[in-house]
């Protein structure tokens, strides 16, 4: 059976509604704008928020890159790319610098983003105060009054429990000195890439029906204490086993034949590009 979908899957009205929410989100950096999350051919929680943003924005001249945990080739990334390709006919890429829209789950690419690019992040839990205050009614009031003791309290509890700031991902950030925002589960390593980013960063939560944004050149500060400053993950002196890179976000991989561990770039396209440029 052949079904003719509208360009970019959604009907025009739906896309316009999502874009309106997006514009509002850009106008109020870090503020969570509610939107009518559409039904998708993939399940909620599998990147529908990000995908809806991408589909509402994609035009005939766009080039899309999709990554999942740093990988261009994971099942989720490939399927999202296929859906975009089939319903729009535009091309996709693995090269970060070639893409105009980059949809990502849990990473911001290693190659610095440029002016004009749009970074779309998939968000499972958009509310940074959720574990402190379960009620949405209450957290809305807390945001309105800029009452963020709860965000700091959660970090304080980590220090009491583990002795340091132990958020592995989704470390809360203060956007434009106003709203505390969940940066989606990117590692702390990527938090600093949001600060005065040249590219527009959009965050979409499909299940929670929220869109929020960090406009280009906006101040983004990771929350921390005076005596416990914010620190990114350290990989010490380890280099990527494949391309030899250092100072990037790496995965620690266990080799069960030699029973040793080694490190490898988490951003696969970055690693492959480096390998391709190396002389053999």
């Amino acid at each position: 059976m052949q079904i003719d979908y509208n360009y970019a899957f959604f009907d025009e009205g739906s896309k316009r509604e999502i874009r309106r929410a997006t514009l509002k989100a850009i106008a109020i950096p870090g503020y969570q704008v509610p939107f009518a999350s559409r039904e998708m051919p993939i399940g909620r929680g599998w990147g529908t928020g990000g995908l809806q943003l991408t589909l509402s924005l994609v035009g005939k001249d766009d080039v899309v890159k999709v990554i999942d945990q740093g990988s261009d080739e994971s099942v989720n990334a490939v399927n999202i790319k296929k859906l975009i390709e089939k319903t729009t006919g535009i091309s996709t890429t693995d090269e970060t610098s070639e893409a105009t829209i980059i949809q990502s789950r849990h990473r911001i690419p290693e190659v610095p983003l440029k002016d004009g690019q749009i970074m779309v992040l998939q968000v499972p839990l958009p509310e940074p105060l959720r574990f402190y205050e379960p009620s949405e009614f209450e957290t809305k009031k807390l945001h309105a009054e800029k009452e963020y003791s709860g965000a700091w309290l959660m970090l304080f509890e980590q220090i009491m429990k583990y002795g340091n700031l132990a958020t592995d991902a989704d470390h809360p950030v203060m956007v434009d000195d106003r709203y505390v925002m969940a940066p989606s589960p990117i590692p702390r390593f990527d938090n600093s890439k949001m600060n005065y980013s040249e590219a527009l960063i959009l965050l979409g939560a499909g299940r929670e029906k929220k869109i929020y944004a960090v406009p280009p050149y906006t101040k983004v500060v990771s929350l921390a204490f005076d005596d416990y400053p914010f620190e990114v993950e350290s990989f010490e002196d380890n280099h990527c086993k494949q391309c030899g890179a250092a100072g990037v976000f790496m995965d620690e991989i266990y080799d069960d034949e030699t029973e040793t561990t080694y490190f490898q770039c988490n951003d696969t396209s970055y690693c492959v590009a480096r390998l391709n440029h190396q002389t053999v």
Partner: peptide, 27 residues
């Protein structure tokens, strides 16, 4: 009280709300 947070965290909550951002001091 916030029953799920530690006792010392409960006290810190009030101190954080009063503007203190120094863990050692609050502890």
């Amino acid at each position: 009280l916030r029953m799920g947070f530690s006792s010392i965290g409960n006290i810190a909550e009030k101190l954080i709300a009063a503007g203190i951002r120094h863990v050692g001091e609050m502890e």
